[in-house]
Protein backbone atom coordinates (compact mmCIF):
# COMPACT_ATOMS: atom_id res chain seq x y z
CA UNK A 1 0.00 0.00 0.00
CA UNK A 2 2.79 2.40 0.96
CA UNK A 3 4.71 1.67 -2.23
CA UNK A 4 1.50 2.09 -4.27
CA UNK A 5 0.89 5.50 -2.72
CA UNK A 6 4.53 6.42 -3.21
CA UNK A 7 4.22 5.50 -6.89
CA UNK A 8 1.10 7.66 -7.28
CA UNK A 9 2.78 10.65 -5.65
CA UNK A 10 5.97 10.16 -7.67
CA UNK A 11 3.96 9.97 -10.90
CA UNK A 12 1.94 13.05 -9.99
CA UNK A 13 5.12 14.97 -9.18
CA UNK A 14 6.82 13.91 -12.40
CA UNK A 15 3.76 14.73 -14.51
CA UNK A 16 3.62 18.19 -12.90
CA UNK A 17 7.30 18.69 -13.72
CA UNK A 18 6.70 17.72 -17.36
CA UNK A 19 3.80 20.17 -17.58
CA UNK A 20 5.94 22.96 -16.10
CA UNK A 21 8.82 22.07 -18.43
CA UNK A 22 6.42 22.05 -21.40
CA UNK A 23 5.17 25.56 -20.71
CA UNK A 24 8.62 26.98 -19.90
CA UNK A 25 10.16 25.52 -23.08
CA UNK A 26 7.37 25.95 -25.60
CA UNK A 27 8.24 29.54 -26.49
CA UNK A 28 12.01 29.08 -26.47
CA UNK A 29 13.93 28.65 -29.74
CA UNK A 30 14.71 26.46 -31.60
CA UNK A 31 11.21 25.67 -32.82
CA UNK A 32 10.78 22.21 -34.34
CA UNK A 33 8.09 23.31 -36.83
CA UNK A 34 8.83 20.58 -39.38
CA UNK A 35 8.58 17.86 -36.74
CA UNK A 36 5.37 19.43 -35.38
CA UNK A 37 3.78 19.29 -38.84
CA UNK A 38 4.96 15.68 -39.27
CA UNK A 39 3.44 14.74 -35.91
CA UNK A 40 0.16 16.52 -36.77
CA UNK A 41 0.04 14.43 -39.95
CA UNK A 42 0.91 11.16 -38.17
CA UNK A 43 -1.21 11.66 -35.06
CA UNK A 44 -4.11 13.60 -36.57
CA UNK A 45 -4.53 12.86 -40.26
CA UNK A 46 -3.75 9.14 -39.89
CA UNK A 47 -6.48 8.80 -37.24
CA UNK A 48 -9.16 10.26 -39.56
CA UNK A 49 -10.52 6.93 -40.95
CA UNK A 50 -10.81 5.37 -37.48
CA UNK A 51 -12.45 8.44 -35.98
CA UNK A 52 -14.73 8.79 -39.03
CA UNK A 53 -15.98 5.19 -38.90
CA UNK A 54 -16.57 5.36 -35.15
CA UNK A 55 -18.33 8.72 -35.42
CA UNK A 56 -20.63 7.45 -38.18
CA UNK A 57 -21.56 4.33 -36.21
CA UNK A 58 -22.17 6.34 -33.03
CA UNK A 59 -24.53 8.73 -34.86
CA UNK A 60 -26.38 5.88 -36.55
CA UNK A 61 -26.70 3.76 -33.40
CA UNK A 62 -27.69 6.69 -31.19
CA UNK A 63 -30.49 7.59 -33.63
CA UNK A 64 -31.77 4.03 -33.95
CA UNK A 65 -31.72 3.38 -30.21
CA UNK A 66 -33.29 6.69 -29.18
CA UNK A 67 -36.04 6.57 -31.81
CA UNK A 68 -38.48 4.14 -30.07
CA UNK A 69 -38.48 6.18 -26.84
CA UNK A 70 -38.85 9.48 -28.70
CA UNK A 71 -41.73 8.02 -30.76
CA UNK A 72 -43.40 6.79 -27.55
CA UNK A 73 -43.40 10.37 -26.22
CA UNK A 74 -44.46 11.78 -29.58
CA UNK A 75 -41.19 13.66 -29.91
CA UNK A 76 -39.78 12.08 -33.06
CA UNK A 77 -39.39 15.53 -34.59
CA UNK A 78 -36.86 16.33 -31.88
CA UNK A 79 -34.71 13.29 -32.69
CA UNK A 80 -32.19 15.14 -34.93
CA UNK A 81 -31.69 17.81 -32.23
CA UNK A 82 -31.24 15.23 -29.50
CA UNK A 83 -28.75 13.20 -31.51
CA UNK A 84 -26.76 16.27 -32.53
CA UNK A 85 -26.67 17.65 -28.99
CA UNK A 86 -25.63 14.28 -27.54
CA UNK A 87 -22.93 13.90 -30.16
CA UNK A 88 -21.51 17.41 -29.87
CA UNK A 89 -21.68 17.75 -26.09
CA UNK A 90 -20.58 14.31 -24.97
CA UNK A 91 -20.47 11.30 -27.30
CA UNK A 92 -18.06 12.56 -29.98
CA UNK A 93 -15.55 14.20 -27.61
CA UNK A 94 -15.40 11.26 -25.24
CA UNK A 95 -15.42 8.49 -27.87
CA UNK A 96 -12.85 10.28 -30.06
CA UNK A 97 -10.65 10.99 -27.06
CA UNK A 98 -10.83 7.37 -25.89
CA UNK A 99 -10.01 6.08 -29.37
CA UNK A 100 -7.09 8.49 -29.57
CA UNK A 101 -5.94 7.45 -26.10
CA UNK A 102 -5.80 3.89 -27.43
CA UNK A 103 -4.23 4.73 -30.76
CA UNK A 104 -2.10 7.80 -30.12
CA UNK A 105 -1.16 7.70 -26.44
CA UNK A 106 -0.07 4.07 -26.62
CA UNK A 107 1.76 4.78 -29.89
CA UNK A 108 3.69 7.66 -28.36
CA UNK A 109 4.40 5.62 -25.20
CA UNK A 110 5.74 2.69 -27.21
CA UNK A 111 7.73 4.85 -29.65
CA UNK A 112 9.44 6.96 -27.00
CA UNK A 113 9.89 3.91 -24.74
CA UNK A 114 11.62 2.11 -27.60
CA UNK A 115 13.78 5.16 -28.31
CA UNK A 116 14.74 5.29 -24.64
CA UNK A 117 15.63 1.59 -24.50
CA UNK A 118 17.69 1.73 -27.70
CA UNK A 119 19.55 4.84 -26.45
CA UNK A 120 18.20 7.04 -29.27
CA UNK A 121 17.15 9.67 -26.72
CA UNK A 122 20.64 9.54 -25.19
CA UNK A 123 22.06 9.96 -28.69
CA UNK A 124 20.14 13.22 -29.01
CA UNK A 125 21.39 14.36 -25.61
CA UNK A 126 25.03 13.75 -26.51
CA UNK A 127 24.55 15.60 -29.80
CA UNK A 128 23.47 18.62 -27.69
CA UNK A 129 19.93 18.37 -29.09
CA UNK A 130 17.18 18.82 -26.52
CA UNK A 131 15.08 15.62 -26.85
CA UNK A 132 12.32 17.18 -24.76
CA UNK A 133 11.82 19.91 -27.34
CA UNK A 134 12.10 17.62 -30.34
CA UNK A 135 10.13 14.64 -29.06
CA UNK A 136 7.85 15.78 -26.25
CA UNK A 137 6.80 19.34 -27.06
CA UNK A 138 6.03 18.53 -30.70
CA UNK A 139 3.90 15.51 -29.78
CA UNK A 140 1.97 17.24 -27.00
CA UNK A 141 1.33 20.26 -29.24
CA UNK A 142 0.26 18.01 -32.11
CA UNK A 143 -2.27 16.11 -29.99
CA UNK A 144 -3.54 19.34 -28.39
CA UNK A 145 -4.19 20.79 -31.84
CA UNK A 146 -5.38 17.65 -33.60
CA UNK A 147 -7.81 16.10 -31.08
CA UNK A 148 -10.25 19.05 -31.24
CA UNK A 149 -10.16 18.88 -35.05
CA UNK A 150 -10.78 15.13 -34.95
CA UNK A 151 -13.71 15.71 -32.58
CA UNK A 152 -15.22 18.30 -34.94
CA UNK A 153 -14.76 15.81 -37.79
CA UNK A 154 -16.41 13.07 -35.70
CA UNK A 155 -19.30 15.47 -34.94
CA UNK A 156 -19.97 16.00 -38.65
CA UNK A 157 -19.69 12.35 -39.56
CA UNK A 158 -21.81 11.38 -36.53
CA UNK A 159 -24.54 13.81 -37.62
CA UNK A 160 -24.42 12.24 -41.10
CA UNK A 161 -24.72 8.81 -39.44
CA UNK A 162 -27.77 10.13 -37.60
CA UNK A 163 -29.25 11.24 -40.94
CA UNK A 164 -28.83 7.71 -42.32
CA UNK A 165 -30.40 6.33 -39.11
CA UNK A 166 -33.38 8.67 -39.46
CA UNK A 167 -33.95 7.58 -43.05
CA UNK A 168 -34.10 3.89 -42.16
CA UNK A 169 -37.51 4.33 -40.52
CA UNK A 170 -38.75 7.63 -41.86
CA UNK A 171 -38.11 9.96 -44.73
CA UNK A 172 -36.39 13.30 -44.07
CA UNK A 173 -34.33 15.43 -46.43
CA UNK A 174 -30.75 16.34 -45.52
CA UNK A 175 -31.60 20.04 -45.67
CA UNK A 176 -34.52 19.66 -43.24
CA UNK A 177 -32.44 17.40 -40.98
CA UNK A 178 -29.58 19.90 -40.79
CA UNK A 179 -32.01 22.78 -40.41
CA UNK A 180 -33.61 21.11 -37.41
CA UNK A 181 -30.19 20.64 -35.83
CA UNK A 182 -28.98 24.19 -36.48
CA UNK A 183 -32.22 25.61 -35.08
CA UNK A 184 -31.65 23.91 -31.75
CA UNK A 185 -27.88 24.36 -31.36
CA UNK A 186 -26.54 27.37 -29.50
CA UNK A 187 -23.02 28.71 -29.15
CA UNK A 188 -22.93 27.56 -25.52
CA UNK A 189 -23.59 23.98 -26.60
CA UNK A 190 -20.52 23.97 -28.80
CA UNK A 191 -17.98 26.12 -26.93
CA UNK A 192 -17.50 24.21 -23.63
CA UNK A 193 -17.54 20.88 -25.47
CA UNK A 194 -14.81 22.12 -27.80
CA UNK A 195 -12.68 23.66 -25.06
CA UNK A 196 -12.53 20.41 -23.12
CA UNK A 197 -11.18 18.60 -26.20
CA UNK A 198 -8.03 20.72 -26.05
CA UNK A 199 -7.46 19.37 -22.54
CA UNK A 200 -8.15 15.83 -23.76
CA UNK A 201 -5.56 16.31 -26.48
CA UNK A 202 -2.99 17.82 -24.14
CA UNK A 203 -3.25 14.98 -21.64
CA UNK A 204 -3.32 12.25 -24.30
CA UNK A 205 0.00 13.53 -25.65
CA UNK A 206 1.49 14.35 -22.28
CA UNK A 207 0.72 10.98 -20.69
CA UNK A 208 2.04 9.08 -23.73
CA UNK A 209 5.26 11.11 -23.64
CA UNK A 210 5.65 10.75 -19.87
CA UNK A 211 5.19 6.98 -19.95
CA UNK A 212 7.57 6.61 -22.89
CA UNK A 213 10.20 8.95 -21.50
CA UNK A 214 10.24 7.24 -18.11
CA UNK A 215 10.38 3.68 -19.47
CA UNK A 216 13.04 1.64 -17.70
CA UNK A 217 15.71 -0.08 -19.74
CA UNK A 218 14.43 -3.30 -21.30
CA UNK A 219 11.94 -4.33 -23.97
CA UNK A 220 9.35 -5.35 -21.37
CA UNK A 221 9.13 -1.74 -20.23
CA UNK A 222 8.13 -0.65 -23.76
CA UNK A 223 4.97 -2.79 -23.57
CA UNK A 224 4.30 -1.52 -20.07
CA UNK A 225 4.75 2.09 -21.19
CA UNK A 226 2.24 1.64 -24.03
CA UNK A 227 -0.24 -0.18 -21.84
CA UNK A 228 -0.09 2.16 -18.87
CA UNK A 229 -0.31 5.17 -21.22
CA UNK A 230 -3.71 3.96 -22.51
CA UNK A 231 -5.03 3.21 -19.02
CA UNK A 232 -3.84 6.50 -17.52
CA UNK A 233 -4.97 8.59 -20.52
CA UNK A 234 -8.45 6.97 -20.58
CA UNK A 235 -8.94 7.54 -16.88
CA UNK A 236 -7.72 11.13 -17.16
CA UNK A 237 -10.17 11.78 -20.01
CA UNK A 238 -13.10 10.74 -17.80
CA UNK A 239 -11.85 12.85 -14.90
CA UNK A 240 -11.40 15.92 -17.16
CA UNK A 241 -14.86 15.31 -18.65
CA UNK A 242 -16.44 15.17 -15.22
CA UNK A 243 -14.70 18.39 -14.18
CA UNK A 244 -15.54 20.14 -17.46
CA UNK A 245 -19.23 19.23 -17.28
CA UNK A 246 -19.51 20.39 -13.67
CA UNK A 247 -17.67 23.61 -14.44
CA UNK A 248 -19.92 24.26 -17.45
CA UNK A 249 -22.94 23.55 -15.29
CA UNK A 250 -21.82 26.10 -12.70
CA UNK A 251 -20.78 28.78 -15.21
CA UNK A 252 -23.75 28.51 -17.57
CA UNK A 253 -26.50 27.50 -15.13
CA UNK A 254 -28.82 30.25 -16.25
Amino acid sequence: MTSYLKEIFTDSGNVSLIIIRFFTNILKAPFEVKELIRQCYLLGYKALPLVGITGFIMGLVLTLQSRPTMVKFGAEAWLPCMVALSLIKEVSPIITALICAGKISSGIGAELGCMKVTEQIDAMEVSAINPFKYLVITRILATTLMIPLLVVFADFIGILGGFVGMNIHSDISLFRYLNKILESLTFLDILPATIKTFFFGFFIGMIGCYKGFTAANGTESVGKAANSAVVAASLTIFVIDMMAVQLTDILFKS
Binding site: M115, T118, E119, Q120, A123, E125, V126, S127, A128
Partner: peptide, 18 residues
Protein backbone atom coordinates in the same frame (compact mmCIF):
# COMPACT_ATOMS: atom_id res chain seq x y z
CA UNK B 1 25.81 21.43 -24.49
CA UNK B 2 28.68 23.54 -25.81
CA UNK B 3 31.11 20.92 -24.52
CA UNK B 4 28.98 18.09 -25.95
CA UNK B 5 29.34 19.62 -29.41
CA UNK B 6 33.07 18.98 -29.17
CA UNK B 7 32.73 15.44 -27.81
CA UNK B 8 31.40 12.61 -29.96
CA UNK B 9 29.90 9.44 -28.50
CA UNK B 10 29.48 6.13 -30.34
CA UNK B 11 26.91 3.93 -28.63
CA UNK B 12 27.24 0.18 -28.27
CA UNK B 13 24.21 -0.47 -30.49
CA UNK B 14 24.87 2.65 -32.61
CA UNK B 15 21.56 4.26 -31.46
CA UNK B 16 20.56 5.31 -34.99
CA UNK B 17 17.20 7.06 -35.23
CA UNK B 18 14.90 4.31 -36.54
Amino acid sequence: NKIKLRVGFLFQNSALYD
